[in-house]
Amino acid sequence: MEAENHTRGTQFILLGLSDDPELQSILFGLFLSIYLVTVLGNLLIILAVGSDSHLHNPMYFFLSNLSFVDICFTSTTVPKMLDNIHIHNKDISYRQCLTQVYLFMIFVGMDNFLLTLMAYDRYVAICHPLNYTVIMNPHFCGLLVLLSWLIMFCVSMLHLLLMMRLTFSVGTEIPHFFCELAQVLKVASSNTLINTICMYVATALLCVFPVTGILFSYSQIVSSLLRMSSIVSKYKAFSTCGSHLCVVCLFYGTALSVYLSSTVTDSSRGSMIASVMYTVVTPMLNPFIYSLRNKDMKRALGRLLSQRSLLSLMDQ
């Protein structure tokens, strides 16, 4: 009991990206700008989808959920990092650290699931167009998203409960800019074998099934496209997958770079830089990818911004 109370009062130290005082103001400005662009860009996607009746279909329903998750994903790590840079303090409390681990796992898992659901949606739209509205009905789409949330809540809660069994020394240093599960387990004072096994099993399952689903969906899509005789039809069908493919490559590409940088080299600095791409840059780029490559989204955003401009002029 004494060890538990001692652990719960522990302050961790997040080493961050750099110890150079001259770089702190640059890092603060850079990450604040990225964070604001991420929140604004994803919020515009949500508002555009919600306000335009032409976008009330499964593809954009999943996209708006992805944008919401990306806002939460970035908000889990960046604000605390900005606060620490601003007040020149690297501390994070035990409870804050556990909360970061819990929320981070939920949102990264939801990104996985939503990208898989979006691939399945494109598979049904291209391979079974006549049954698309019957299969991808609003009730079924809502159920898929709800099930994804429930799975991630349960998996993250399991890791949280296992972490609460661990003990940490006072002033434990975490070589990262946020509390990432693998890094926290490395600095624990007690045995982390069970935690590590559960982490690898959960990571394997939560990556293998979504990636398998995405690969299966696109293998069927390619097979269906090859059977089409019209080049115009092929281009039109595949163009709806372009944005999603870009986001999938960006998400899994940066995630893979984090994994490789942590296994191939022992350098925590390289792993942190890769993590920045994965946790900060990717959520910022997603709205640009979907808005620049999608004509319907461009039109919806144009109408939304013109309405906002008109309302502001009327208020004046």
Rank of each mutant, 00 (worst) to 15 (best):
P138W: 00
G171L: 00
G50Y: 09
P138G: 02
G9L: 02
T279E: 14
H6K: 13
H244G: 12
S51R: 02
I85G: 03
V276T: 11
S169N: 15
K295A: 15
I221M: 05
S275F: 11
M110Y: 04
R165A: 06
I197V: 13
R293D: 11
L285T: 09
V145H: 03
D19E: 13
F68S: 03
F62R: 06
L206K: 06
V281W: 10
N112A: 07
F104A: 05
S230E: 03
L103W: 09
A48Q: 00
P21R: 07
F209S: 12
L115E: 08
H139E: 14
L313K: 15
L311E: 14
M81Y: 15
H88E: 11
S291T: 12
L158V: 15
Q220E: 14
G253C: 13
H128A: 00
P138A: 04
D20I: 12
I46V: 10
G171R: 05
P129M: 06
N5D: 13
G242I: 11
D19K: 05
V39S: 06
S239F: 15
M81L: 14
V155D: 10
V276W: 10
T77L: 09
Y200Q: 11
S53C: 12
L55C: 13
N294C: 11
L206G: 02
S148T: 02
H244N: 13
T240V: 14
G142P: 07
T74I: 07
V49Y: 02
S230W: 08
F251L: 06
L98D: 03
N112C: 09
F73Q: 01
E2Y: 04
A48E: 06
I85E: 00
L114R: 04
V145D: 03
P138S: 01
M284K: 00
I46G: 03
T7M: 04
I26V: 15
N286V: 14
H54M: 15
I45M: 06
M152C: 15
A119S: 10
P129N: 10
C97M: 03
M1W: 12
N195I: 03
S64Y: 09
R303E: 13
A255W: 01
L14D: 06
E173N: 12
P138L: 01
G270H: 05
A3G: 13
A300F: 04
S169A: 14
V281G: 00
F168N: 02
V170C: 14
C179Q: 01
V264K: 10
M1P: 14
V155K: 07
C179L: 03
A48W: 01
S67E: 13
V276M: 10
V184Y: 02
P175T: 05
S275T: 13
D20E: 13
R293Y: 09
V145A: 05
T203W: 10
T263R: 00
T76K: 07
P175M: 02
S262N: 11
E22R: 08
Y60G: 06
A255I: 00
G16R: 00
